[in-house]
Design a protein around this nucleic acid. Structure first.
Ligand SMILES: [Mn+2]
Ligand SMILES: [Mn+2]
Ligand SMILES: [Zn+2]
Ligand SMILES: [Zn+2]
Lengths: 144, 144
DNA sequence: CTCTAAATAGAAATGATTTCGTTTTAGAAT
DNA sequence: ATTCTAAAACGAAATCATTTCTATTTAGAG
C-alpha cells in the first residue's frame, strides 16, 4: 500500500518524501474529506517538525497531479480526499459527516459536445458534485 | 426592466433599495461574471457613499435568494452573474473573457435518483459547471 | 407623517492561505 | 558509500479577500 503511494508519486514526478507518504496514508484511511489544518494537527505527532504550509503545499500539488481530489465546499475552504478510483467520475459528498461516495457515469461528455456544437469554444474542465446527506446522516435527521 | 428588478426583490422579500437595483442593473448589463470589488469600483461613481461590504452583502443575499448566481472559480474568489433564465439549468463559463452561456438540460435528476437508490441519503444540491474558452476566445488562442 | 426593522457606512478585524529566505533532504550520479 | 543538487520543508511573517461591528440612515408598512 505505501509502496503503491511511492509509485504513484514517482509516476507524478514527485519525490516520495516521508511527509507526503504520511499525508496520503492518513487521507486514504479517512472515510471522508479533511482540511489541511486537521491533517496537520494529526500528523504533527508523527514528526518532530511539520509545518502547516508544507501540508497546504503538498495537498495542492497532489491534487494538481491527480493523486488527490478537492471538495468544492459551500464554506469555500479547502478540503481534500483520497479516491483510488482512477476512472473519470464524480462524487456525492455528505455535508454532515463528510463521507464521499462515487458517482458512476456522469454523462457530461455528451453535454460538452452539445455545448461546443452550439456555441463553439472549448471545454477545459467540468465540475460535477452532489451535496447532501449520506444514508446514515439522513436517518439521524440533521446536519452536524 | 428596473421595475422588473424591484418586483423580483419584493418577491424575494428584500427591500428595493437604490443600491440593490444598481447592482442588479450593472450585473445584468454585464456579458459575464464580475467580482464584488469590480462592481463596487464602477458603482461608486453613481453614489456619494457606497461601501464595499454593502456590495459583498448584497451579492450574497441576492445569490442566496436566487436572483443572482455564483461562479465556482479556480482561484476561489467570489464572482457573480445575472441570468434571467428561471428554469433549472447550468452554465459554461469562459475562464478568459468571463462570458457565461446556458447549458440546457443537465440530466442530473436521474443521477440523483441513482445515487439515492444505491446509497440512500438525500441530495440537497448539485454543482455542475463547465469551464473553458468560449468560441471567440478559443479562436484567439489563449487565456487572458 | 410616523415608526421600525432592514439596510448601509466605514473602520477594523479576521483568518485561511501564501510568500519568502533559509535549511534540509531525496535520490540520482559517481 | 559518498557527493551533489534540485526539490522539499521550515516557520515566521505577510497577504488580502471577506466579514464583523457599532452607529447611522432609510424603505416602506401602517
Ligand atoms: Mn471517487
Ligand atoms: Mn443561465
Ligand atoms: Zn453523512
Ligand atoms: Zn471567452
Amino acid at each position: 500500500m505505501e509502496q503503491c503511494h511511492a509509485t504513484a508519486l514517482k509516476a507524478a514526478g514527485m519525490k516520495a518524501t516521508p511527509k507526503r507518504l504520511a499525508i496520503l496514508e492518513m487521507l486514504e484511511a479517512e472515510p471522508g474529506y479533511a482540511s489541511p489544518e486537521e491533517l496537520w494537527k494529526r500528523l504533527k505527532d508523527r514528526f518532530d517538525r511539520l509545518g502547516l504550509p508544507t501540508v497546504y503545499r503538498n495537498l495542492e500539488e497532489l491534487s494538481a497531479s491527480g493523486v488527490l481530489s478537492k471538495v468544492i465546499h459551500p464554506n469555500r475552504q479547502l478540503y481534500y480526499y483520497f479516491c483510488s478510483n482512477r476512472e473519470h467520475h464524480h462524487h456525492f459528498v455528505c455535508l454532515s459527516c463528510r463521507k464521499v461516495e462515487d458517482i458512476p457515469a456522469c454523462g457530461i461528455e455528451a453535454l460538452e459536445q452539445e455545448v461546443t456544437r452550439r456555441n463553439g469554444g472549448k471545454v477545459l474542465s467540468h465540475i460535477l458534485q452532489l451535496n447532501g446527506l449520506c444514508g446514515g446522516c439522513a436517518d439521524n435527521g440533521e446536519i452536524r
